Each structure stands twice: as structure tokens, then as C-alpha cells.
Simulated assay, not measured.
Amino acid sequence: MKPLIILRPAPGAGRTADKAMAMGLAVRLCPLFAAEALACTPPPAGDFDALLVTSAQTVRFGGAALRAYRTLPTYAVGAATAEALREEGFADPVAGDGDASAIAARIAADGHRALLHLSGEAVAPMDAGPLRVTRIPIYRMMPLSCDPLDLSGGVLLVHSAVAGARLAEIVPENQRATCDVVAISPAALAACGSGWGSAQAADAPNDAAVLALARRLCE
């Protein structure tokens, strides 16, 4: 069995690892980034009619600043982020099942216009449509060192385009053929570059789809 190598940072890496081990996969953690908080002064909640959170890391580092927005209609890009918001006292966050553009369309369809987007320093492109978006970075991802030999022969899980670009930096193209790449989205896959033993994007941007694809490659 090939090892499944999870490249995402904590705490998401731990959640993915638990699911993978429950499937009987041999798991290794090799995070390419670690998150750290940014100093910020978020604006008053009264300036907005909805809140968007596109990462569970935002919830992790938001603290009191995030809790100030619990009265706003709140949207999360996915189920994991919505669950993290519920744990912080957000009563009924709406969870998307696509990318940031998809949840932005849902927010607009619900009639909101002034949107506060709490996020990381780097974000994926988002089609905001009619929304007036104020984005406040709450955290940033700091790159970690990784020996390409630690990745050799594994099935590599890539959870973002930023991680894909970092992976392409770490592993020279002439050393990629022994690795298989499974990415959470076409954008994440494209960022990984070429030369891998195989490279595929999951058919949905979530852990269930990523791990189902990875299992077939590991076995």
C-alpha cells in the first residue's frame, strides 16, 4: 500500500488523517504551511448585512473579533468551516458545497449586499457578483521546510492552490514521477505543475471526494 501524505496544515490535517485512517490507509503528515495570526481591527458589525468565512483557520484565529459578528447572517465555504463556526457560538451558519464564488452567489440570492469576508492573507479568486465585499485578513500561512524524499512514493493530498504551488517549488520536476497527486479542485491541481506519476482532481471540493479518489491510488 502506498502511503497517503497529507500536506495541509493543522488542525485540518488531523481531521483528514482521522478519516483516512478509518478507511484503513497508511497516513503520514507533512504540512507545507503553518498558520499564524495577523493583527487586525475589524470594522463594526453594523456596517454589514452578512458575514462570509472561507476557512476554519479564520475561526481558529478570529477570537473576540470574530465573535462580534455572531448576530450577522453567516456563511461558510464548506461544512468543516460551518462546524467550526457553530463551535464558536454561531447558531446557524449556512454551509456551501462548492467554492467561494458559489457561496457568494448564494449570499447574493438571499438578498444581502454589504458583505464582510474574514479570511486568510491569500485567498482564491471569488466572483462577488453584486456583493460589496470588505475583506479582512485574520491569519497568514507561513511555509515550512520539507524534504522531497519524504514525499517520494506517496499519494499526495493537495487541499489548495497555494499548497499546490508550494509543492511544485519543493519537488523538482525530475523527481515527481514516483508520486501521485490528488487535488481538491482543478485550480489546486493546475498549481502542482506537471511530471507527476498521476495527477487528478476530486469530483467535489471536500475530504470525502478527495479521500475516495486517494484510496484507489493507495491500494
Rank of each mutant, 00 (worst) to 15 (best):
Q57E: 12
A64F: 05
V210I: 13
Y75A: 12
T178M: 03
A82N: 04
R135Q: 11
F61I: 01
A82R: 00
A201H: 09
A177Q: 06
T134D: 08
A212N: 07
M141C: 01
F48Q: 13
D180K: 04
Q175W: 11
A212S: 12
A84M: 00
R8Y: 04
F90M: 07
S185K: 03
E121I: 03
V182H: 15
E87N: 15
P44A: 10
G98A: 06
G111F: 07
L25V: 05
A22V: 04
L52R: 13
R132F: 05
E36H: 09
C218H: 08
P186E: 15
M141F: 03
G63T: 05
G195L: 09
I170Q: 11
V59H: 03
G120T: 05
A105G: 15
R176G: 14
G12Q: 06
V94D: 00
A13W: 00
R8A: 02
L217S: 14
D99L: 11
V182D: 15
A109K: 12
A80H: 09
E169P: 01
T54D: 02
L149K: 15
L167Y: 08
R216D: 12
P11T: 09
L213D: 10
A91F: 05
V171K: 08
A91H: 06
Q175Y: 10
I6K: 14
A95R: 08
A26S: 10
L131H: 09
E173S: 13
D207V: 04
R215W: 02
E83G: 15
G153E: 06
R216E: 09
A165G: 15
T54S: 12
A209K: 00
G153W: 03
H117F: 08
A177E: 12
F61C: 02
L157Q: 01
I136T: 02
D49W: 11
E219T: 12
D127L: 12
A39R: 11
A79R: 13
I5R: 14
E173W: 13
M1H: 14
G111I: 09
W196L: 03
T81H: 11
H159V: 01
T41N: 15
A212L: 11
A209F: 06
A56D: 08
P125F: 07
A122M: 04
A20F: 13
A204R: 07
A79L: 11
Y75G: 07
R135T: 04
A84G: 04
K2G: 04
T41S: 15
P42K: 13
R140I: 06
V59F: 04
A105R: 15
E83L: 12
Y69N: 00
R86Q: 14
Q175R: 15
C179Q: 11
A199M: 02
N206F: 06
E169S: 14
